[in-house]
Design a protein around this nucleic acid. Structure first.
Lengths: 142, 142
DNA sequence: CAAATATAATTGATATATCAAATAAAAAAA
DNA sequence: TTTTTTTATTTGATATATCAATTATATTTG
C-alpha cells in the first residue's frame, strides 16, 4: 500500500506538469507560438487592465526579472504594448494589442475544453475537497 | 462563491511552488548549495542505484538535456561520480559520492519535518482523497 | 553478416528561473 | 525642502527548460 504523505507532492507536481503540457498541445492547435504563461499574462491583463509587472509577476508566481524578459518577448511578438505611465514613472503601462486580444479569444474555447476534459468524472464536491486540502497545506507552510 | 474548476490549477501550481520554496529554505539551514531537484536526484540514485540519466529524467519530470547539465554540476560539486558503463557504453554509471551520501543523510530529517509541517491537521483520509482526485485528472489528460 | 533502426547522451539555441546589484522615480522622514 | 528610505524595473550571471540536431553505441532486420 502506498504512503500518500511520501508521494503526494510527487503527484501534485506530476499533475501540474502534465496539465501544462496538455494545455500547450491544445493551444498550439489554434495559435502558434504561445506559451502557457504568456496566455496567463494576457488573461490577467484582460481581466484587470493596468496591472504592473510586479503585480503580474505575483499572479503568475514569477520573479520580476523573469517578467521583464517575458514582457519584452510579448512586445516583440506584438501581443502587448509597453508605454510610459504618467502617474508613476517607475512603472509601465502595459496594454494588450488587438493581436493579443485575438489570440486570447481564440484560446478561450480551448481553455474551457481543457478544463472540461481534465475534470471529466470529477464532481464539484471533489473539486471543493481538493481546493480545501491544498489550501490547508498552503496555510501550513506559509 | 469561487468556482473551483477555474481556480484549481492555480491552487495546485501555487501549492507546489510554495512547497518547493519552503523546502529549499529548510534545506539551506543544514546544507548549503543544494536545490530541490538535486536532492531528488540524490534520493532516487540512493534508492535505485544504477539508474540511467534518462530514467532519472523521467522520475523528476525533466528533459534529457537538462539532466546532462544537472549531472555535470553535481559531479563538479562532488555529489556524484560519472563513469563508463561496460555493459552499455551509451549510458553512464552514475554513483553517489560519500559527500553526496552525507548531504542526503543531513537532509533526511529535514524532509520528514517538512512533510510533517505541511500536512499538519490533514488526515490520512484527506491525503488519500487528494491523491485519488489528482490521479483522476492525470488519467483524463494523459 | 551488413544495413537500417533505435537508444542514450550531448550540444546549440533560445527562453525562463533566481539572486544580487544597479537605476530611477516616488514616498516618507528629518 | 533636503535626505533617507522604499518601490518598480532592469541588467548580469548562472542554472534550468525545451526543442532540434548530432554523436556514439546497441539492437533489429533483411
Amino acid at each position: 500500500m502506498k504512503i500518500p504523505s511520501k508521494t503526494v507532492f510527487y503527484t501534485i507536481e506530476k499533475t501540474i506538469k502534465s496539465y501544462r503540457k496538455f494545455s500547450k498541445r491544445n493551444f498550439l492547435k489554434v495559435v502558434d507560438d504561445i506559451t502557457i504563461d504568456q496566455k496567463l499574462i494576457l488573461q490577467y491583463l484582460n481581466d484587470f487592465p493596468g496591472l504592473s509587472q510586479k503585480e503580474i509577476a505575483e499572479l503568475v508566481f514569477k520573479d520580476n526579472a523573469s517578467l521583464t524578459r517575458m514582457i519584452d518577448l510579448m512586445v516583440n511578438k506584438n501581443f502587448l504594448k509597453r508605454s510610459m505611465n504618467i502617474e508613476d514613472r517607475r512603472r509601465f503601462k502595459i496594454e494588450i494589442t488587438p493581436k493579443g486580444k485575438e489570440v486570447l479569444s481564440k484560446l478561450e474555447p480551448v481553455i474551457a475544453e481543457n478544463r472540461k476534459k481534465a475534470f471529466a468524472g470529477i464532481t464539484e464536491q471533489e473539486l471543493i475537497q481538493l481546493d480545501m486540502i491544498l489550501n490547508k497545506i498552503l496555510f501550513n507552510i506559509k
